[in-house]
Structure formats: C-alpha cells, structure tokens
C-alpha cells in the first residue's frame, strides 16, 4: 500500500532581489496513515515553507522548483492548482500559527465554516450549518449556535484556534498540517489544545504534521521526528529514539538546550553561533561553522543516510548510538 504522503527531494526556492534563498533544499520524508510527524528546527529552517509546499500555497517570489510530493499516490507538484484545490481543506487541512490572524475579521464564524463545507460538497446551507455546529461542539465551543453567529474578534486567541481546528476537521481530512498552532497561546491553553487535537486525530485516524521549534512540546506527541536545518532534514527517526539518542550534532545541541525536569539544575548548553543566512550558506555541511565535531571531511556535502531501517542522519561524524543524552 502507498504511504499517505511521500515527499521526495523537495526544492522550494525564493527568488529575492538579494539572491536565491533555498528555503527548502532536498527535503524527503514519508508519512503513514494516522501517523504524527514532528517537524522541528530553529526559526528560518524551512518548516513552514515545507508545510505550505505540500498544499501548494507558497507565495511569490517563492516556488517549488523540484521534487515530488506524492499524496495517496498522486503527485501534487505535477498536478498543479486544480488537483490541489480539491485536496485543500478536504483531504489535507492546515492550521496556522497565529489564531488572531487566520479567521477573516469581517466574516461571521458560520460564514467561514459553511463556505468550507460547501467548497467541497454539494450540500444545502442548512446541512452545512449543521456540520459546522457539530464541529464546534467537537472542539468544545459552546453554546455553538450563539458562537456561530459571532465574529472572530469576539473570541479569545485559544477559542479562535479551536475554531480554526474545527474548520480543519470539517471534512475529516487524512492529513492535518499544524504550523506551530499553540505557540501564540499561553501555556495552559497550549497544553489543552495540544491534547485535544491529538485525541481528535487519533480517533479519526488523521495523520498530523506538527511543525514546531519546541522539542519539548512535540516529544510527547509525535511518532516520528524530523529535524530541519537550513532547508534540509538532518536527522529523522522515531521520536523516543531521536530524543534519547540523537545522532546529529545539531539535534544533540537542540536537546541539550531544552530545560527538562530530569536535568534540573544542570547547565543548559546553547548551540554556539547563529542560524546561517540562506543566502550565504557554507559550502559543505551547512552546520559546519557551528559544529563541535567538524573537520576537513565536512567540507563535502553529507547526504541523509539510513543508519537503521528506522533512522537516518545527515552527518559524517554522527554521535555514537550508545551515547545517551541524559546523565543519570
């Protein structure tokens, strides 16, 4: 059987006045039905652009310049706009980072939900409204009838994100791409929404790509992790293994910089140096200027190589599998 989503060597470049920014440069990963993939990396590493590329929502000056995105067997890159429009919102939904900005301020919630139902299904307004109401109940918004008649500004940030989630759930999609959906919310709401979305996806068998720069958030949620750096995936594998035994020096740096209960009181190590500008990337391994393990070999470009059937890493000198991050 086909995997639900198979991204192969995706290239999405931005053609700016200062040069070509290869925001996504050779990203490949596979997602099975119902699986949760955590896409992590520092700001600017290309996580959002990867998400938008899947939906064909990359705005100029950016565009997909190469690669393949197979969704349930059909190539979305080759299919173009017509193929995509029928998938968007129907089989692949997306939730954005800032709930204050995702709902149209001058349209009522019912309008924004009903149009989503009717964009893909030829149903009556009343039926669409019933579905919208049901979705609101599902994400815990009450009283739904009253809330349907409200405008976005009458909701708090957390409530708006719930509405956005309800909209994403309207067609029971096969895949939801959640681009840092909780980052803009305060911590308690974050945790609530996180677990709610997880439950909803688990019960409906929806696969999830959870984009975040926060390893702690994603570690309890994702089946697999893909770590991005400068437009490419540098390590990929089952969440528990990647967290416990990171093989790439960058992943290791990320994990070392996460404050966690077990490490209480221990010094946090920061990854030295800055995220490189996409316009001025080093020649060989993109992480070289910041890498404690770098040597002459790294002046060539490493490729993403499988270590086991489950894991792969893009590094000439990966950490040893035996090296545990957590000190007893």
């Amino acid at each position: 059987m086909n995997p639900l989503l198979q991204v192969t060597d995706l290239q999405t470049h931005f053609f700016t006045r200062d040069g070509v920014a290869k925001a996504v440069d050779g990203v490949s990963f596979t997602l099975e039905k119902g699986q949760v993939l955590g896409l992590v990396g520092e700001s600017g590493s290309g996580k959002s652009v990867t998400g938008f590329s899947i939906l064909g929502l990359v705005d100029p000056p950016g565009r997909i310049t190469g690669g393949q995105i197979l969704f349930d067997g059909t190539d979305l890159v080759a299919g173009g706009e017509p193929a995509l429009r029928h998938l968007r919102g129907k089989r692949i939904a997306m939730i954005f980072q800032d709930p204050m900005m995702t709902l149209n301020p001058v349209l009522r919630i019912d309008t924004q939900m009903v149009e989503t139902v009717r964009a893909h299904e030829d149903v009556s307004h009343a039926e669409a409204l019933r579905r919208a109401r049901e979705a609101l109940v599902q994400v815990g918004i009450s009283p739904p009838d009253e809330r349907l008649k409200s405008y976005p500004h009458q909701f708090s940030g957390g409530m708006r994100q719930r509405v956005a989630i309800a909209i994403a759930l309207l067609h029971k999609p096969d895949l939801i791409i959640a681009d840092e959906p909780t980052t803009a919310l305060d911590v308690t709401i974050q945790a609530q929404i996180l677990s709610e979305l997880q439950t909803l996806c688990a019960t409906s068998g929806t696969a999830l790509i959870w984009i975040t720069h926060d390893l702690a958030v994603v570690s309890g949620l994702a089946d697999r992790l893909a770590v991005m750096y400068a437009g490419r995936i540098i390590e990929e594998g089952p969440t528990a293994e990647v967290i416990a035994r990171p093989r790439h020096p960058y992943t290791r740096g990320l994990i070392d910089s996460v404050p966690r209960g077990k490490r209480h009181g221990a010094m946090l190590t920061q990854i030295k140096g800055m995220t490189p500008s996409l316009l001025k990337l080093p020649k060989g391994c993109k992480f070289m200027p910041r890498c404690p393990r770098a040597d002459r070999v790294c002046e060539a470009e490493p490729s993403l190589v499988p270590l086991t059937s489950e894991r792969s890493v893009r590094c000439f000198h990966p950490h040893d599998d035996a090296e545990e991050v957590l000190q007893p």
């Binding site: 929502l57 705005d59 919102g89 954005f96 900005m101 995702t102 964009a119």
Partner: peptide
Amino acid sequence: CLQDYVKFARAKGLAGRRIVLVHVLKN
C-alpha cells in the same frame, strides 16, 4: 492578500473567485 486569513481561505480549498469577491473585497 498577504494576510493569513486569505492564505487560510486558500488552505480551506475555496475557489479563487470566492476568495477575491468575499474575503478580499469585504476587507
């Protein structure tokens, strides 16, 4: 057009005509 809500409207799979005539025009 640069606002997130227009991108979100596209992500919902709305037709271009509806996005321009309702989401953009009303704003």
